[in-house]
Design a protein around this nucleic acid. Structure first.
Lengths: 136, 136
DNA sequence: ATCATTGCAAACACTTTGCATACGC
DNA sequence: GCGTATGCAAAGTGTTTGCAATGAT
């Protein structure tokens, strides 16, 4: 488990309470939350927290490569701790986004039809395991 | 080339001037435009056109399966004439979205880790052919 | 004391809604 | 003439910006 304060220092970001809590949340809960979900999750802990700070902090972190901002589905931005690329799956019922341990190296750093491909995303949608169970 | 008015009638949608022009635009220009791009493209032709009508119309068309609304990249909704699934590529320089003639049947209608997969998207980003040329 | 971070309020961009007018059969 | 589509204006979201107050060293 990485030490959050160390991570911030490595990126030359001053470790404030808000920043630590936000990054900690994303490290510990792999739920790919939106900015609002992060705010809702932390505002009990830090009652003075403002959404502006959440937005500013997420921006700082993504600019420094600590987080990645994902626009995968349904016109919403979700954040995750920066990791190796992997497949995402979104449940259409509970709206959770899962990481899948599928690898895919198709198309990466290739030229297709003359276009230079540098990023690629494989995004799946459907009904997740636990919603399938409940549905019964 | 499909007759736009016929298409509308088949879906029980009354063919108005605005609806015909919007659908025609999406049939003829495979540019995956946003609502605003469609508005900008047509407002010269129909000076009284309002964005509300564009939004309403796109909603009607997607609900009827004539169009698909895509949230592929960068938190924006783009529309395309409904076709077989294919790979999309977005140029990070000119922001154009291209269709690629790559097929992919991986993961479709499969169960992965217990999740039922019903939709899948393969989205690529990079620099397109024509921006590569200009860059020289 | 200085400089950066926070967070309120306002601005902003995109989209939807309410409703009166206009259009088409 | 009636029912629906249109389009203005206003409201609703999600996000960013300006700036004064606060916090940390």
């Amino acid at each position: 488990m990485q030490n959050i304060i160390e991570v911030l220092k490595e990126h030359n970001i001053a470790p404030s309470m808000q920043r630590v809590k936000i990054l900690e949340y994303l490290r510990d809960y792999k739920t790919h939350p939106t900015a609002d979900m992060i705010y809702q999750a932390l505002v009990n802990d830090i009652p003075t927290l403002s959404k502006t700070t959440v937005y500013n902090t997420l921006k700082t972190f993504t600019e420094n490569g600590i987080l990645v901002a994902l626009s995968l589905f349904d016109n919403e931005v979700r954040y995750e701790y920066n990791t190796d690329p992997h497949v995402h799956f979104k449940c259409m019922k509970c709206n959770k986004i899962y990481d899948l341990n599928k690898t895919f190296d198709l198309y990466k750093n290739e030229f297709i039809d003359g276009h230079k491909v540098t990023e690629h995303y494989v995004n799946l949608k459907g009904i997740c395991k636990s919603c399938l169970k409940e549905g019964k």
